[in-house]
Design a protein around this nucleic acid. Sequence first.
RNA 1: AACCCGGUGGUGUAAUCGGUAACACAACAGAUUUUGGUUCUGUUUUUCCAGGUUCGAGUCCUGGCCGGGUUACCA
Length: 559
Amino acid sequence: MTPPSEHRDFVRQIIEDDNASGKWGSRVHTRFPPEPNGYLHIGHAKSICLNFGIAKEYGGLCNLRFDDTNPEKEDVEYVDSIMEDVRWLGFDWEDRLFYASDYFEQLYAWAEKLICDGKAYVCSLSLEEIRSGRGTPTEPGANSIYRDRSVEENLDLFRRMRAGEFPEGAHVLRAKIDMAHKHMLLRDPIMYRIRFAEHHRTGNKWCIYPTYDYTHGQSDSLEKITHSICTLEFENHRPLYDWYCDALGIHHPQQIEFNRLNLTYTMMSKRRLLELVQAGTVTGWDDPRMPTICGLRRRGYTPEAVRSFCASVGVTKHNATMDMVVLENHIREDLNKRAERRMAVLNPVRVVITNYPEGQIEELDAINNPEDPAAGSRKVPFSRELYIEAEDFMEEPPKKFFRLAPGREVRLRWAYFITCTDVVKDASGNVTEIRCTYDPATRGGDAPDGRKVKATLHWVSASHAVPTEVRLYDHLFMKEDPDAVDDPSLDWKSNLNPNSLQIISNAMLEPSLKTAVAGDRFQFERMGYFCADKDSQPGRPVFNRTVTLKDAWAKEQQK
RNA sequence: AACCCGGUGGUGUAAUCGGUAACACAACAGAUUUUGGUUCUGUUUUUCCAGGUUCGAGUCCUGGCCGGGUUACCA
């Protein structure tokens, strides 16, 4: 899709410049540092591809590190899913799996050092007092009355905080920087808070937990990271990370901020995605409508498509929103080459070939993938009664409708030319049966006399068809920007698409599809790419539509 | 109002000492096609504004304007 280019994004340019100048001794070491408080989404995939991709391209290393400093929101369920998703994407952290919680002891020792250096103090103000004392962006904050406690008192209190002698909220440890600083973050930020919470890894060993800001930079430092690549919203935090590294006199990685990925018709907020899961709006984190990696996987996306999409999105310093169709084009491009074709009728209507012998069955050859000769061919049974797509017939066709209509001849894929001779309708006028004749000379789909038809339809032999459930997905949200609401009393949830899932309970599959197992991907000819769901039963696969094919007729109809 | 960061077709990006604004997607038109798919060809559309420096500015300077982030004991 995107041709190979000499272009390097600004992050890679920085790395190449550093390698050229020998800044890090030509060492490149990155990391992907998720918090295990939710499932990874396509936005994380961009970050994973960037960090692991850069390490690979420049002969460096990339760590996986869990930034697990908030025990109240984190869980091993998330840790496990994150590892699974990173692996599925095709990346390997080898023996470099780390947890910020592994550094708690070191972080604590460093906190004592900052206390001893007069650079941190125990503050006993309440949450509200700290907040109000911080000032506003335009007004300086006020020094805490505890700011000038002695080193001895600070050390004593901090050790007793760790020992569990104080209730939550009684004290915090703050860095002593500058309450009048222009950066709000540098107005004596919190380093430690008391939390009697069980941590998913350290259990009840700790009742004080370091904040992210006090942890993140030092974790990178401990791992000897050279380039700490993160998203734009951490730009404001860089001076604070710098302050900690400098105050501690430790290895100081270079932080580089890039723009996070946004996609139309969906959202990347872990908080909101969790809300959808908890409210039952979706069936879970892996609901195929979710932008999560596991959701995309279940939807039928391949790691290759996700990676090529991530490689194409662009790494810059300004906010951007990618069009969902770009993601969809990447999976189409991948699956077009790889997915075998099958025939499946989603909205069946019966066709009777009146001049075809009753009881006769022919096994016809069907090519599995015209894009890949190595995929070979299969047999498809043909008989007197078939199903075709209801949308492929119109009794009174408009100008540009090329498909079946009374008196018109079309081709059945890999089978015969048929001509519609009659239409049977029920009392309310619905078409219940279409009667056709076939031309035996066109077996396989070619007319020896060279005559042409304007349409080729997919079909399934009625007596051989495998009835099953197919799930069709549409955008999670009706608007490109889920936050766009006209009525101020409404929020993003009002933009949820009520038709994001359409369940078809009686789709008809060609018999070869009967043995499909979860994860199998096919192109249902003319309908789209589909992936067998984990809800499949032996002999009765359930399919998710990954994405439709491009549809020139649908576009024509919208005019 | 403060601080930080940004503004290039509809969207995402490129233009690396200042030298013809280009690529992909989308849109539109056509060709090919046993998928109205794929593939191929063509067309439309671009430097936030105003000054300045210069033979020459998307790029440098000044001043505006607009957008995002920050004001958690979240990350």
